[in-house]
Amino acid sequence: MSFDRTLDESALFRICFVCTGNICRSPMAEVVFRDLIRKSGYVGAITVMSAGTGDWHVGEHSDARTIAALEAHGYDGSLHRAKQFDPNWFENLDLVVVFDRSQERILRAWATSEQDRGKVQMLLSFDSEQAAQVDVPDPYYSDAAMFDNVLGMIERSSLALFRQIEPGIRRGTP
């Protein structure tokens, strides 16, 4: 599997958001982070993609509730197609952001070096106000309100992550 249009290897900083099935949390984060990149003028400097630890949704759109929550907040998540994370991607990524401890364990187990294990970070760890919660809940078995709640968590943490990356990008060094 290739990165298709989702990873510009020439970018200064490359991020992959990884959840379980790549139809709820990680596509939300990808869309939110792409919007931050676009609005800040860093298209081409930071590239972002998303994937899942499992393969059961590969090729599918995001969950309809994900798309609806994104649309309600002014984002377009309609183009997303789920894919599974490939451990060979580690070498081309600077950061692999996960949403819960289960994904963290899986990705760190798939990493073949300490350097790659160190790339795996929990999303909420970037936001001091949410870090104590540790996990972003999976809204899949819940209602539309939970999707909105999760999107809010992702927006806040993504902005905190972006603010940590942005000074290095501005200087031209990741």
Rank of each mutant, 00 (worst) to 15 (best):
S2R: 10
T6F: 14
L7P: 14
L7E: 02
D8E: 05
C19V: 11
I23Y: 00
C24I: 08
C24K: 03
R25C: 01
S26V: 09
P27Y: 12
P27K: 14
P27V: 15
A29T: 08
A29M: 11
V32G: 08
L36F: 13
R38P: 13
K39E: 09
K39C: 07
S40F: 00
G41P: 09
Y42H: 09
A45I: 08
I46W: 01
V48C: 02
M49K: 13
M49D: 15
A51G: 05
H57Q: 02
V58D: 06
S62A: 13
S62N: 01
T66G: 00
I67M: 02
I67V: 10
A68I: 11
H73L: 07
D76N: 15
G77C: 12
A82D: 00
K83A: 08
P87F: 13
P87T: 15
F90E: 04
E91D: 04
N92M: 12
N92W: 11
L95T: 01
V96N: 00
V98S: 01
D100P: 09
S102T: 08
E104M: 13
I106Y: 09
L107W: 09
A111K: 08
S113D: 04
S113F: 02
S113G: 02
D116H: 11
G118L: 03
M122Y: 06
F126Y: 04
D127T: 11
Q130P: 04
Q130L: 15
Q133R: 12
D138T: 12
Y140Q: 00
Y140G: 02
Y141T: 06
Y141W: 02
S142H: 14
D143M: 12
M146T: 15
M146P: 10
F147Y: 15
D148R: 10
G152I: 06
M153A: 10
E155L: 10
E155D: 07
S158Y: 05
L161P: 02
Q164M: 14
E166V: 13
P167T: 14
G168K: 12
I169K: 02
I169E: 06
